[in-house]
Design a protein around this nucleic acid. Structure first.
Lengths: 340, 340
DNA sequence: GACTGGCACTCGCTACAGTCGAGTGCCAGG
DNA sequence: CCTGGCACTCGACTGTAGCGAGTGCCAGTC
């Protein structure tokens, strides 16, 4: 198990070179490009140990070494340091995100920015409704038996749903319904809504009861049960960089996975506060993404997390750079939301 | 120019076989699989003519023939008949679209359905704001100097925008603003809004004037100038069928084009009433899509068109089937919107 | 005059053998 | 413990040969 400093340096060099060139790296090339201070033969011995321990492997006998998922993991955990972004990059982020006019705009700009900076596929989750609270509920009469229920959350999200009422409801009653709902629900987190909604129905005056029941059902159904999460995606074209060498030749499974919102949410939605999560290849629980790595983190105004964002790319990716970018973008988005 | 019936039959057979097998088709295979009633040699002569006229070509000397874009064009225009959908397919469409709860849901279901049925990339444009009329405008106070402006269109679209007011506006004034805007704008098409908005500002009582000016600006900016169009996309994984033979080996340009909303809108957004448009390969004005074909049509409640939808795939696609599916889906979506 | 069978020809594909070279593992010596 | 040297492996590349699908053309037939 003895991995002395030099062996770690060799592993780091292999990862860096392989990420840069995308070609298996041999002992000679390694000593030439890095100041290891030893001969190729020595490096070869170290490589043999690293291979035995499962950190690198040989594609074929007469080829150089390539990091394994385990090798990348060690690299990320112990051998790399998050690169600080250049001032130019910081400015680019600010410039790009500034001037967003609403939440949709923020999310779209963010996802494009992430894709562009990391040159990978970017995913941004809209602020989760479960982590939002109600800022306002609006009822807009469409006809005497139809209402549009609009919910505005403190995170800026706006959701609407058409509601078919069991019986015609006069305008005054709509006003009452609106007032009652807002009195009871404004300021509450959506995750704690269900009991309150029940109270709402129970306390409603008799003639409002049927309409209130319907509205409550829709509210719960849409916002709580269906867990209305939204995502934005960008940069799929970046998957084709590295000419099919990444992703073992087929984009198919990756593209399929990217179409499954559920999968993506799982990838980027489970972010812990202020942690950047890195999933490398096999560590990924989604079979289709066994050849990919995901770097994700949470974002939100201040210290709270309201959603996740991240990027997906080949296991052969620039982890330090990607991690730095993902973090930085998340922080800027958080600040932007805080101003709201 | 003399293309007699048999030559056309040969072309049709070539297109059908090539679409089915994805392999250049030779004269022998052709007479075996189709009842042409002539010998391979005769077919070869016909092929020579077809090649001279630019309808087919040979990938290499010793290979069979492959249709050119021009060949597909002739096939689509004169040699094929739109296949009626099977009852099973119709039922599948109905079942899939039924139960959509709001516009977002309709659009998402539609795009997934299209992708699944055609096994290609599907694009659906949300009902265009330019072709919608205002059903209701809502002003929701966020703070004394901030309003959320919500516009609900008759097509079901809901757009919102945060408005920063120049000065605090009391609740009563908000009510007045709301009333005035709705009185003037409800029922009008958004494309004819600008002059009305001007009137709105001019006629506003003095103390509402500044707020109304800001609101109008935002309204015009968001809904008219920025031409807020939205799209949904699905089925990109289908691009990988046919293992890189389609799209001349690289998905790159296609994926890039699919990320450009502007491009996609151009492709599917210019639909004429009740026409299905087919763009084959080169006919496409977007360079990145020179290797692809697009089948698109408009949809809307009744006879009016409010948006476009379509699919994108390799030039080697089943045109009759795809056209039939796109049309059928568009019609069902139209019916669904009409019920609204 | 249109169609057909026959035939020579083209040329991509596959298999195979041979060479080259990058890279390794191992060993003896410093 | 490191190093230079050496034998070995094996993929990548090259050149050659044979195969076969498919063609174009032509003379013959209905």
């Amino acid at each position: 198990m003895g991995l002395d400093d030099r062996k770690l340096a060799v592993l780091r060099a292999i990862v860096e070179d392989y990420v840069a060139t995308q070609e298996p790296v041999g002992s000679r090339a390694l000593v030439e490009r890095h100041q290891l201070g030893v001969s190729p033969a020595t490096v070869r011995n170290d490589m043999a140990v690293l291979e035995e321990e499962g950190y690198i492997r040989q594609p074929h006998t007469s080829a150089g070494r390539v990091p394994t998922d385990r090798g990348y993991r060690l690299f990320v955990d112990r051998l790399s340091r998050v690169k600080p972004l250049s001032p130019a990059e910081r400015r680019a982020i600010e410039r790009f995100l500034m001037g967003a006019v609403d939440l949709d705009d923020v999310v779209h700009r963010t996802v494009r920015l992430l894709a562009q900076l990391t040159r990978q596929v970017a995913v941004v989750q809209y602020p989760s409704l479960a982590r939002s609270s109600v800022r306002h509920l609006e009822l807009v009469p469409i006809s005497t038996t139809r209402l549009m229920l609009v919910m505005i959350a403190d995170t800026g999200r706006v959701e609407q749903r058409l509601v078919e009422l069991p019986a015609p409801v006069p305008a005054d009653d709509v006003t009452d319904l609106r007032r009652l709902m807002n009195e009871k629900l404004v300021g509450t987190r959506l995750s704690e809504t269900p009991p309150l909604v029940q109270v709402l129905v129970d306390e409603a005056p008799t003639q409002l009861r049927p309409a209130m029941t319907t509205l409550s059902t829709v509210l719960l159904e849409t916002l709580v049960e269906r867990h209305e999460e939204r995502l934005a995606l960008a940069g799929t074209a970046n998957l084709t960089r590295g000419g099919l060498l990444d992703f073992q030749g087929s984009l198919r499974p990756i593209l399929e996975a990217l179409e499954e919102e559920v999968v993506l949410l799982k990838l980027i939605g489970e972010a812990e506060p202020s942690t950047t999560r890195v999933l490398i290849g096999d560590e990924n629980e989604v079979d289709n993404l066994r050849a990919a790595s995901v770097v994700s983190t949470g974002y939100g105004p201040g210290a709270t997390i309201v959603g996740g964002l991240g990027v997906l790319g080949p296991t052969r990716m620039d982890y330090p750079g990607t991690i730095a970018t993902v973090r930085a973008v998340a922080r800027y988005v958080g600040e932007l939301l805080a101003q709201n």
